[in-house]
Write a protein that binds this DNA or RNA. Structure first.
Lengths: 214, 214, 214, 214
DNA sequence: TATGAATGAGGCTTCATTCAT
DNA sequence: AATGAATGAAGCCTCATTCAT
């Protein structure tokens, strides 16, 4: 009878959709304002749901933030999985990976901001999330494969560390988005137009390639 | 004797010392907790002065933050001025500048965090500070000189943009500090020990040099 | 029984009652102490509700004041609507209106004080309230009708301006309450006993009637 | 030797001028913002003197207000003394007094506002000032003389009370200034232009004269 | 007589969170 | 599953006033 009643009500009654909606709004709010700057009231106001439901599904602000962080990583890593590099020669694969990473970060400023915020918080929430750590090792695996193939082919110098290489690629791609505001406030917006950004990407690719070559 | 004692105590009635003290404590608080996360009460408690004096000298939280940001930039840029590159050949000068920047950022995590926080706030306060913008052009001038000399000597390729080069050096140096927390949470702390950091610095130098060479 | 008891208690969960209670207390506090002199803490203490609820329903002190001002006008104008003058000859209608206004102001010192306070604030809040302006035109309509009838009957002189007449009636009625404190401090309380007040009212009626007559 | 030193310093050293300056600024501040709305800091900033001097000469905010109130009454009463009515027939004298009072109030809005504020405070400060009470009896004396002469001449009706007459004249003259803000917010500014104000004054004169006539 | 520095008390407001229905 | 009402704790800021020189 209970189920019948629910069915009859025909109302919202879609818990997963409600949670997705909340997470979407929460991510935007956290990305824009930081953890302490974010307001539960603003999230509730922009949600199709209500403040009560936020607490019902997520417990409190910190846990909502943790879930938004997880969701942001999941979404971004899902995008990265689209990239297929196995069939390419190692230098082309690396070039493509760098270019992709640069563009991908550039297309996901909300994710970048979530990571910035997490760093402000000393990665306290990331440390607690098993889920996210798992996702990121795949990225290293990809690089490790490229490095191995590049060394084997005599194209790359020996002794490259895939994690360090990931660090270098990330540095160039991440900084471009994370520090855009201060950089352009100090030195103008010239670097951040479409054309110059494409140059920056190409130069980043070249920088990495020059670095790994024998 | 009484006057001597008072003078020696050097205690209150020293506005500049009071303001410096407040700024020092405020910078630490803002760097640790962000703008909304920072607490005036905590700053006051750690100060030799009082909450009331914070408002007396700085007006409100936002202006205190703006002043702390300015002070952070000023301190860092003052450190950079110590570096004398004019006498070195261009490639050595560039190597030294990159290495110095890397180490310097690494030694000033509070400054890095202030810049991160400012980026979270879309550089709203930086945009309002004439003072800071002035300081940063000197950094570009140094690079422009190196680039010019490098090109003239046939060591560097033509067409290098000093601002873009600054962007590249900053990316590698900044990310190393700003994203240390998330990076080590995801991939371990191996890269952040003393030895590996020195390697990272050397590799950053090499990466930049390989990039600029003809 | 539980539900009955709760329902009977009629206690909380009654937003309109809570707001009315707050407005009642707030009006008393503002009327007594002015806008800057009023204390939210005092209002909260005298309310059945809490300080937090004041902000929940009214936003801030200024808006609470604005609402109290509106409520004061609404209550007074509602009282004035009781007065039915249409059936009376114009001179009697006017006499009754003046007498009523005089007594009405005298019975509503809190309202008079609110208007005094609003004048101290250069009517900044009144200017922002569409609601109040609407209410007051009815008062003019009443007078306009009397004036028209009086002129038509040859009882009143031509050229009377209803707004100016309202000004004159208000002046006599308002001053009696607004300046009672200073006036009696300077010239004694004789005028403000019950009997003399009734004389003052009758004399005000006579003054207005003598003025409008041909 | 002390006096010599002072003379030699040739500095400010004019206590009375300093106090006058403070009172002038304080009156403006109190008249504009009320007692609780007034700010000692603002007064100090507009003064040629300093905050310390305000406390030195006046003790505290309340006593400063009390002194400003006294000064306001003194200045206004001094203005009224200019008026010479003894030589005029009683009806002309009364007409002149009413017109003068109307104009005089209109020219001294700061004084009117001080009186309004004092009424908000239930005349607590006026009650404490012997000085002010003395000043005001002169005004009544003038009226009493006119009334006596008018009755004797058979021009005015018997039984007029000079204090009540003062109340009536004051009501019309005071309200015009005190309630200008709310009145014009509710009914427009038409009544407060120069020409209409002159009519209002003439009508007030007429209203009083019609009232006193036999 | 004069000044800038300093202060305790208290004001207004906001926040995440929970309750009653 | 859902909602508007309610709340305690704590945040930021301001004020009249006094101190040290």
């Amino acid at each position: 009878m209970k189920t019948i009643k629910k069915a009859k009500a025909g109302w919202k009654q879609n818990p997963e959709a409600v949670q997705r909606d909340i997470l979407r709004v929460a991510t935007a709010e956290f990305a824009r304002n930081g953890l302490s700057g974010a307001r539960i009231d603003r999230i509730a106001a922009r949600t199709k749901s209500s403040k009560r439901m936020i607490y019902y599904y997520f417990g409190d602000k910190d846990r909502l933030y943790a879930r938004a962080l997880e969701a942001a990583y999941a979404k971004v890593r899902a995008g990265e999985d689209q990239l297929d590099l196995a069939g390419l020669p190692p230098d082309e694969a690396l070039a493509r990976l760098v270019g992709f990473t640069f563009d991908h970060h550039r297309s996901n400023p909300a994710f970048i901001r979530m990571v910035m915020i997490e760093n402000i918080h000393h990665a306290a929430f990331l440390a607690g999330s098993e889920a996210i750590r798992g996702m990121n090792l795949a990225a290293i695996d990809k690089l490790a494969d490229i490095v191995r193939r590049g060394e084997a082919a005599g194209l790359f110098r020996a002794g490259l560390d895939p994690i360090e290489l990931h660090w270098q690629i990330s540095a160039l791609s991440f900084f471009n988005v994370s520090n855009r505001a201060t950089f352009s406030a100090l030195f103008g917006k010239a670097l951040f137009g479409r054309e110059r950004q494409e140059h920056l990407r190409d130069h980043s690719v070249e920088m990495i390639l020059r670095y790994v070559r024998v």
